[in-house]
């Protein structure tokens, strides 16, 4: 089966302070495919996080259906199993670290699964090794950089051996070096361990490296496709309040001013190559 998460006509409403219902998701149908890196983007308040919180049953549908690896989120009996399949990493690492020693923090998840001690040790070793954190094993997370702390949070999720990791703006608080560390590791886990990855982000430069992207607006999915396809539709992207990646944006500006360039420039390398080849 190619699809890991299947969402059909999902609706979700929040109750606001005044007692009015605010529709956060308004009939969303989408899939997450096994082994892919999927980016979900859209303006603040477009419904990205609400949607992602359905992937591991943190929220249950107002109406519609969410099936994770064959299990329905609607059935409470599936919740524990679904949370083992889909792990979640949030924006601020300081809110997710629970222990004062890196190794213990990473062991927290597997311990809660009730695994035998030997298996826990094996998983912690593997998770720390996969994220290149072995040197920090006995350190306090507080003594690490923000990027490393976020990697510890990811290691904690990885130690649960999920099939899918959902990252909700994992780099928003990080400096450029931290961002690079986290993204490179996320890509490596996807490539080497085959972990299906869903990345919620505002950074179009992060989206460029994903297999597919979904753009949300006001609780609906507005566009789905490969980043290269979607970023070729510059006007539509801008109308949804989003940017193009820097190189694509520059190419778009140059074309508006009359320069002839290929239609689908996405990366800096492509832009530089085509500008330097032009007669």
């Amino acid at each position: 089966m190619k699809t890991l998460i299947e969402i059909t006509d999902l609706t979700y409403k929040y109750r606001s302070g005044g007692g009015n219902a605010v529709t956060a998701l308004n009939g969303v149908t989408m899939q997450v495919y096994r082994g892919e890196i999927l980016a979900i983007t859209g303006q603040n308040g477009s419904g990205k996080s609400t949607l992602a919180r359905h992937f591991n049953a943190l929220l249950t549908p107002g109406s519609g259906e969410v099936i994770v690896d064959g299990l329905s989120v609607n059935d409470k009996k599936n919740t524990a199993a679904i949370r083992r399949i889909v792990g979640m990493v949030f924006q601020n690492p300081d809110n997710q670290l629970v222990s004062s020693v890196v190794e213990e923090d990473v062991a927290f998840g597997p311990e809660n699964l009730g695994l035998p001690q030997a298996e826990i040790v094996k998983r912690v070793d593997w998770a720390l090794k996969s994220l290149d954190l072995e040197a920090y094993r006995y350190r306090s997370p507080n003594s690490l950089s923000e990027g490393q702390k976020q990697l510890v949070a990811i290691a904690g999720v990885l130690a649960m051996k999920p099939k899918c990791i959902v990252l909700d703006e994992p780099t928003a608080h990080l400096d450029p070096k931290g961002k690079r560390e986290v993204l490179e590791n996320v890509q490596r886990l996807n490539r080497d361990e085959g972990i299906t990855t869903v990345l919620l982000t505002h950074s179009m430069n992060e989206v460029v490296h994903c297999d597919r992207m979904i753009i949300m607006d006001q609780g609906l999915i507005k566009l789905t496709g490969a980043p290269r396809e979607l970023f070729a539709q510059a006007e539509q992207i801008k109308a949804l309040g989003l940017d193009l990646p820097a190189a694509a944006q520059l190419a778009y500006g140059l074309k508006l001013k009359g320069l002839t360039l290929p239609g689908n420039i996405l990366t800096i390398e492509e832009l530089v190559a085509s500008l330097c080849q032009l007669p």
């Binding site: 303006q43 603040n44 924006q91 703006e169 928003a172 608080h173 505002h202 309040g241 989003l242 940017d243």
Partner: peptide, 8 residues
């Protein structure tokens, strides 16, 4: 600008 979308 932390946490704001591109338009914001």
């Amino acid at each position: 600008a932390a946490g704001l979308d591109p338009e914001g």
